[in-house]
Design a protein around this nucleic acid. Structure first.
Lengths: 273, 273
DNA sequence: TGAATAGTGTCTATAAGACAATATCCC
DNA sequence: GGGATATTGTCTTATAGACACTATTCA
């Protein structure tokens, strides 16, 4: 029998036997009165107007899954530095704009997408990451299903938009399969995004951002395999997914597939569009 | 039999049967020539000197484990806003200073610690998080063994240093057990640090930052239980840790413990001191 | 009917949880 | 020896991987 105490679970009849007695430790928090010099130092430091500040941007790694590989959206750099290279869509953070809001704005204006999954990824701030000036970039990653992705970039009609195919090695290639140059440290940002996505597969129903509303278990398996970069066991994958409670069977089947059609599912947290 | 192709594992004799044939997908990457207006927009945007910029700081969540609970180091705010409240040690990011370097500098100057584990945590940038001005803060978390922690703050001899005990609920209390006020959004930053630490337990030998050089398996178990906020199964924990390869048995035993002494271990990646 | 993949059932190996039995220290 | 905890070994249960077998669609 167990009960909650201070947020810890204790087994009433076992704790005494299982736990080792601890030597007493004396508290150490000290609260002496603030001294004058420390206070002055603080005040001086907060006179921030006197200091130069780095530029602050957000960069978006918009990921989609297409033809068995992850793809990201890039913008071709029109100028030096890195002229002609693939850069991530990004923008400066406004003074009266939350970071998440800035990310959503860039996603809307430069990628043509609203309401998709976005999450803060990591902040890149190496001093020399941009040769022009000090720029610290808060990177975000977004996931979107491929049809939305393509509709979005088609709607923007912007010449500089590019889609890069991300190889498991981390290399990025264009539609012809040729490896392309990536601007600044954006290759590293993309690699970090893929890594994060991989980590999320274990505990989050990631696939639902990358799949259409209705999909088969095999579709979902392909998403996992592509993200992870290796095969997963089919039987075990099926069992795990069905046991997770994240999937709802629609009672409908694939059509026109040339073999026994698979059942269609949707994710439990998203009502059918 | 399997072989590598494009970074994917394929089972030679099984792929045909296991994989469903995919409908062909046409590539979509387009590389039309850059247009003049897009170029001008880019240039205008990069004229960054014209824009106001948020202040950029790093804040440190220095965590240690003491008396069965996580503790963090705070600084008492000497001024408004949040006068008297507990704030995280932090500082502005210098123009010629990497983010990680800034974090290490704050850790050294304000916490008295060098060479400890530090990792970027998350970037907090809500517009209203500091009422004085727009401040975006890249939060870092650091882990240190309690004796180092206490030696460090003792060496600084600064009156405003405070140690907060972090309750599993997220509340922070002083040495007397009273809940204290936390400045700005720093309670949220601390909560994020604890959450991250929990997540890392699954795949990283986190304990080694929080334990002395020599420790018993039970010490390590206590670290996990405190961080996770719940008990773990002793037998399984033991097996997992010993099988992980992260531990090296020292062939020495505890002394003066009033019961059968446990074997002492050290972490494999850290040579004895 | 045959090709192709979906889905089910079963067996085995591995890891986790439970618990008994034995070992070793200090008093 | 008695108290206390460490450590080992065994049993049970849950989960993953492997694989055979049946089901269903289209050509």
């Amino acid at each position: 029998m167990t009960y909650m105490r201070l947020g810890y679970m204790y087994s009433v009849d076992k704790m005494a036997a299982k736990k080792r007695s601890k030597t007493a430790t004396t508290g150490v928090s000290r609260s002496r009165d603030a001294e004058g010099d420390a206070e002055r130092a603080f005040l001086a430091e907060y006179d921030v107007a006197a200091y130069e500040r780095p530029s602050l941007t957000v960069d978006i790694v918009l990921l989609t899954l297409k033809a068995g590989a992850m793809h990201a959206l890039f913008v071709r750099r029109a100028d030096h530095p890195c002229k002609g290279a693939y850069a991530l869509p990004g923008g400066f953070v406004g003074m009266r704009e939350d970071l998440d809001t800035a990310a959503a704005r860039v996603l809307a204006t430069k990628c043509g997408l609203r309401g998709v999954f976005v999450e803060q990824l990591f902040t890149f701030g190496r001093v020399d990451r941009d040769p022009r000036t000090r720029v610290v970039s808060v990177a975000y990653f977004a996931l979107v299903e491929t049809t939305k992705f393509e509709r979005a970039i088609a709607s923007l009609e912007r010449a500089e938009l590019l889609v890069g195919r991300i190889r498991p090695s981390g290399d990025i290639e264009d539609a012809t399969g040729k490896r392309v140059a990536i601007a600044f440290d954006h290759d590293q940002i993309v690699a970090t995004a893929i890594e994060r996505l991989r980590g999320k597969l274990d505990y989050a129903p990631v696939g639902y951002q990358l799949l259409p509303d209705r999909f088969t278990l095999f579709d979902l398996q392909e998403v996992h395999e592509t993200v992870l970069g290796h095969e997963v066991n089919k039987d075990s994958f099926r069992r795990r997914m069905l046991a997770s409670g994240d999937l709802v069977a629609l009672g409908e089947l694939q059509k026109d597939v040339g073999h026994r059609p698979a059942e269609l599912y949707r994710f439990a947290r998203r009502s059918a569009v």
